[in-house]
């Protein structure tokens, strides 16, 4: 080529390159839209079918269980879900955080620590029904303090939440730069103070986010509650008794012949989704206040 070097220094964009770029971009976009379709449809159906169930009674009365006459609202299901999830969180979050702390601050890269990590990973993959069955066999069939009870459902849910809390807390805790720990140690702080006063406060937004997401996940699980809590219409604060919950309420109502019960199920599903939505939003807001990289 007799063209001068300076002119040909940067080769021009070929047509083929341009087409390939656009094709890739188009493909990625298409796949995204494809994935969005079911999500949008779900939301659409939820809103369409569930909104009609909403009323003041819907939220303020318990289901009556009566076939004829007033079927009632879902108050006990909402309160039950809240109470069971709160108890489950009271177990899962401290223990999960504790495991994460041990892994990051003490176990580090040791053989045992890696073994623990492996088990936690396995636990995240265990189907939720297995947790329910486990609690059924260990706590219900053996009739530890009665048969079905809310607290046993909470146990099943906390088993489900534990690996989620641990995993997310471990990620956030390990994102706390070692330089901060070093600085605190070099000032003459004992290690437990370093963890309590420096590591946890720095990782707190991330820990809260991870916990909220675990809570949101647990609130919607049906299978663990099926075998441990069973269904009841009324409401009581006592965790040693059976308790209603949104997933079970939905499970029950969906199979009924009456249309208004099915509608109530849709309403309960929408309520549950809205609760989870709110939790997730709070988690995001908290995350934005974090000073660590994502």
């Amino acid at each position: 080529m007799s063209v001068s070097v300076t002119r040909a220094a940067i080769p021009p964009l070929t047509r083929r390159r341009r087409v390939t770029d656009n094709a890739m971009r188009g493909l990625a976009l298409a796949l995204t839209l494809l994935a969005l379709v079911p999500l949008v449809l779900i939301l659409y159906y939820l809103l369409k079918k569930g909104l009609s169930a909403f009323s003041v009674d819907f939220f303020t009365t318990d289901p009556t269980g009566r076939f004829l006459g007033d079927p009632g609202g879902i108050r006990s299901a909402i309160l039950g879900t809240i109470e069971i999830v709160v108890i489950a969180s009271a177990f899962a979050i401290p223990i999960g955080l504790g495991v994460a702390l041990w892994l990051v601050e003490y176990g580090k890269d040791g053989r045992f620590a890696n073994l623990v990590r492996y088990f936690i990973d396995v636990m995240t993959g265990v189907p939720s029904v297995v947790f329910g069955l486990f609690v059924y066999i260990v706590l219900v069939v053996t009739q530890v303090a009665g048969t079905f009870a809310a607290w046993k459902g909470a146990v099943a849910l906390s088993l489900l939440m534990l690996p989620i809390v641990t995993r997310s807390a471990e990620v956030v805790l390990s994102l706390v730069p070692d330089s901060l720990r070093e600085a605190a140690l070099a000032l003459g702080a004992p290690r437990w103070r370093v963890i309590l006063r420096i590591v946890i406060p720095t990782a707190l937004p991330g820990i809260v986010t991870g916990s909220l997401l675990a809570v949101a996940r647990a609130a919607g699980e049906t299978a663990p509650l099926l075998f441990s809590v069973a269904f009841v219409n009324g409401w009581s604060l006592d965790p040693s008794l059976r308790m209603n919950s949104l997933p079970l309420q939905i499970f029950n109502d969906v199979g009924q012949a009456q249309d208004r019960l099915v509608t109530r199920a849709w309403g309960a599903a929408l309520t549950l989704v809205l609760m989870i939505l709110i939790l997730t939003l709070i988690a995001r807001v908290v995350q934005r206040r974090s000073r660590l990289a994502p």
């Binding site: 730069p177 330089s179 600085a183 605190a184 000032l187 000073r291």
Partner: peptide, 27 residues
Amino acid sequence: GMVFQKPNPFPTMSIFDNVAAGLRLSG
């Protein structure tokens, strides 16, 4: 005491708390 290569003030603390941190952390 030790000062490190990369400045590492505690991110969750104010200027005052940072300076006081040594005293508080070491009891």
